[in-house]
Design a protein around this nucleic acid. Structure first.
Lengths: 341, 341
DNA sequence: TAAAGATACGAAAACGATTAAGACACAAAA
DNA sequence: TTTTGTGTCTTAATCGTTTTCGTATCTTTA
């Protein structure tokens, strides 16, 4: 590997001069700078990030926590899309992305924080994990700039998809289509679930909807079988709903199956709405009406905020950035106005 | 940050002793080792990977190229699943994963190779990219241990999903179900496409199937609209196929749409088979018959091979590891034996 | 013309680890 | 007793940068 020393020798200058020339410091002459740079190019020089990091305490590397097994990691459409956007955002500004884990064999103790300290991440993004584990708490309480996605900690920057507004928009949407008997299969308990559920109830009240208790069901996120079962339950009620909301798009397809198996037709007989707006949802008939979360913007905001936190720690305020989603109007919710019984 | 020096002072020994104690070298006394370790733990010491890397020329970091925009990066089910498996595999052995890009602002020239040199990756995995770009060629021609997925370079280790066997199994499967008029919508040109197409033809010959030219169509991967169009074309033929194979599961759903829109029923009237075995395919009715690629094994093999290449460069042979997939038998291919005209 | 200010470059000390080689004490063997 | 060996620890060089401070040369200005 060719180092600055080699370039220095080749150019007949000192290492200091090479360093300054390559970093475009202004106490180096124009001609010298050019000479050094040309030589560096010619000799195939690449800066040694480890050495640079050792000296400057800056790694230009961002740790991403993306780990919880239940969430099936990278294969989760929503999180993967956010990560993809985050990746593009930070890379364009010269940062790399490294996954955080706690296997690290050369950290003293194996822990997320240990891993981060060891690698010297400039900042960390907590995208998908169990936010209640002690390891995570330890991590966010550290002095490393941190941004979380869809979860709120005190004094930690967060980017949140607006679940309150989202659920309100979605419920209002189906209400406007004439639906008055709306069921909601919500996901397993989490802050996201809480927000949506609370918003569902509040919006229902505002719209003058009465929601029987048996219309509120639970099924884990992305569990088509569970959603299938709950849908069957709902369809078996003496007064079944005309529209069912699901925790996510995956689950909504479980609903499709249950409805069809009951000899009914999606939309025609029972309307369905999902949540997330994953790609496939737009490509399956009937196309799914769903609240599409803006993964592009979410990832971008996480990246921007994090870099701002890293580069301007004093002037960047600790805040929660809320990103709006919007209803994607598919064919799975039937307009039943006028046909009301 | 507490360093070895701090521990050395606190323990009244030299830095060298601390280093050796923590690295479990055998020229340090048992008692000293314990004392040093306890102190390290107590003081919250974490090794500085940059310093270690500078000295040892080992980063315990693996670069992953996962970049091509057309392939939509991380949101591609197949590649994301492979990456997830790769990630778990290498992390358990103490390696980290960092994405390779070419934005790097502190490399001399911005290039993939420059980025890798700069970061000092111990090895690189090329998972998803345009294998024909000069930048990639430059990368695989370097001396950095490399493993590619689903693409073959000379003298470079590769892990390949067995597309030849896969297509053979799939075609044989539908043949055994009685299908004799089988169309194949293949993906855009690539080595993977080539393999499958060649295998399709060869298998057809072996089975004594005659495939009319108009049964072979092209539609880009993961393009439901394109698949929809080609399906419409096929259904409009004077003698339409009884079964259609698609480039991937996503496309297959485009086929579902076309079939239904033509007033026909999937499976009942026209059989459909996908390729990949993405999660959602098992959860939509009729469940998709598809060649399920073993993403878990693929990622695992990439990781194992890469680490072997890194840790035993002499004894690891340059080879191509082939991973088998298997037909997932869904409900989208109807058994029409006996009903043959 | 001499003092003061710019400009361009270099010397050397860090950053935090690893590691070869040496030193010292003590036990075992000659 | 001397030699050899063994176990434990230290010294010091080194990895490739950055950065502070110093110095030499050249311009300006009074």
């Amino acid at each position: 590997m060719v180092s600055m020393k080699d370039i220095a020798v080749a150019c007949g200058v000192s290492v200091a001069t090479v360093s300054k020339a390559l970093n475009d410091q202004n106490d180096i002459g124009r001609k010298t700078k050019e000479r050094v740079r040309r030589m560096a190019e010619e000799m195939g020089y690449f800066s040694n990030s480890a050495a640079k990091m050792l000296k400057t305490n800056r790694s230009y590397n961002i740790g991403v926590l993306f780990a919880h097994e239940d969430y099936s990691g990278l294969t989760h459409d929503y999180y993967a899309a956010v990560l993809d956007s985050l990746k593009r955002t930070v890379e364009q500004q010269g940062y790399d992305i490294t996954f955080i884990n706690s296997y690290q064999h050369f950290a003293g103790t194996a822990s997320y924080l240990g891993h981060c300290r060891s690698r010297g991440f400039d900042g960390i993004a907590i995208v998908c994990t169990d936010f209640y584990s002690p390891e995570i708490i330890e991590l966010v309480r550290s002095d490393i700039p941190t941004v979380t996605l869809d979860h709120l900690f005190n004094d930690v920057c967060a980017v949140m998809s607006n679940n309150v507004q989202g659920m309100q928009d979605l419920l209002t949407y189906v209400w406007e289509k004439g639906h008055r008997r709306v069921a909601y299969i919500h996901g397993a308990d989490s802050s996201v679930t809480q927000s949506r559920l609370a918003s569902f109830y509040r919006t229902a009240v505002q719209l003058g909807l009465t929601i029987p208790d048996e219309y509120i069901r639970m099924s884990p996120y992305r569990d088509t079988k569970g959603a299938y079962r709950e849908t069957m339950y709902l369809l078996g009620l003496s007064e079944p709903p005309t529209c069912i909301l699901y925790p996510d798009d995956f689950s909504a397809f479980g609903g499709y199956n249950a409805i069809r198996e009951s000899g009914l037709k999606v939309a025609e007989d029972v309307s369905v709405a999902g949540y997330d707006g994953i790609r496939i949802a737009r490509h399956i008939e009937p196309t799914l009406t769903t609240l599409r979360q803006d993964t592009e913007e979410l990832g971008h905001q996480v990246g921007e905020k994090l870099i701002s936190l890293i580069e301007h720690p004093k002037t960047t305020l600790v805040e929660t950035i809320v990103v709006e989603g919007h209803v994607f109007s598919g064919n799975s919710v039937k307009d039943i106005r006028g046909k009301k019984k």
